[in-house]
Nucleic acid binder design. Structure first.
Lengths: 159, 159
DNA sequence: GAGTTTTAAGAGTATTTTGTCTTAATTTAA
DNA sequence: TTAAATTAAGACAAAATACTCTTAAAACTC
């Protein structure tokens, strides 16, 4: 698996926040229910994003979490790096410590190119463009629910 | 981590076998000692490669394991797929089941392109070219040892 | 055929990842 | 000022991954 579960949850949550119409706090409980993610686990993931400054949280009623910057200013690499770290983008494909141009493994050059391709894609994709696309085309952000349903329904809705 | 430890061990072992001068059986014990991999663990990994037909094994003295095809006919994708499976190359970056052109997530297109890039690199890299490169430039195949040392020393060597 | 060398197979252990539960601290609002 | 709502933090549990150990089966050598 390329990204850890926590990282995937972090990306989905970030995308959800970026697709909100207003920029107020959204409670983690709501995110966890709408995205079908374990509440307590998500809490810990999002703490990593607040500790790195990508999000800010607020306690109490009307509290929750929100992006510190506009979705258009946050790229996916920032989120991945905050949760999974940058090892994926620095490590050797054959697992050799310290693999690099100075002491390469036979696969180093090719892998470095591919690795940079992943990084480039993540760095050049921001939350806003994904949220826009998701809303316009009502794409999925959870197993069964698209953006449309997600943004127009309360959790408590019986429907 | 992109590849599991087992997969990395499988790749290193395959590369080691492809770099042998003769095509006889090499004992798993020798591979495990030279590549510094746990013997019993490696045994299980290589069993996956023999069960998929990429390698063949032989018991008893003079036994061991060897590639069924020439190193130039084995690409890295075959090895990765045999050990880690093809999920990496089919799964959604956001973890949504069944993500694809029909029911995409907002990231699907971009991720599919990147994913195919990884696959393309693996499919278009064969063991022989890596072994050749490794031997010519005496690159590393283990943390401290290069190809040269590896191929010219017996395990029992006191040196 | 007996003994040795090797892979095969399975049970068991350790570590990491993933997820759960409880309590504390903070904030709002009645 | 009390109660409710929320995040923060830490202990705990489950599952997956990584690794170890023991025994069995096969093949070679004498």
């Amino acid at each position: 698996m390329l990204l850890s579960k926590g990282c995937i949850y972090g990306l989905r949550s970030s995308l959800f926040l970026a697709s909100q119409e207003n920029d107020g706090y959204v409670s983690i409980r709501e995110i966890s229910e709408k995205l079908d993610i374990s509440f307590h686990f998500l809490t810990k993931i999002l703490q990593q994003l607040t500790s790195t400054g990508l999000m800010e949280s607020h306690k109490g009623p009307k509290g929750g979490i929100r992006l510190t910057k506009s979705g258009s200013e946050v790229n996916l690499f920032e989120i991945v790096a905050a949760i999974d770290g940058v090892e994926l983008f620095t490590e050797c494909a054959l697992g050799l410590p310290g693999c690099g141009v100075k002491k390469p493994c036979p696969l180093h050059e090719k892998w470095a190119g591919t690795r940079d391709g992943i990084r480039y894609m993540l760095e050049n994709t921001n939350l806003m463009e994904l949220a826009k696309k998701g809303k316009e085309q009502n794409l999925r952000i959870t197993e069964h629910g698209g953006f449309e349903w997600l943004l127009n329904n309360d959790c408590n809705d019986a429907s």
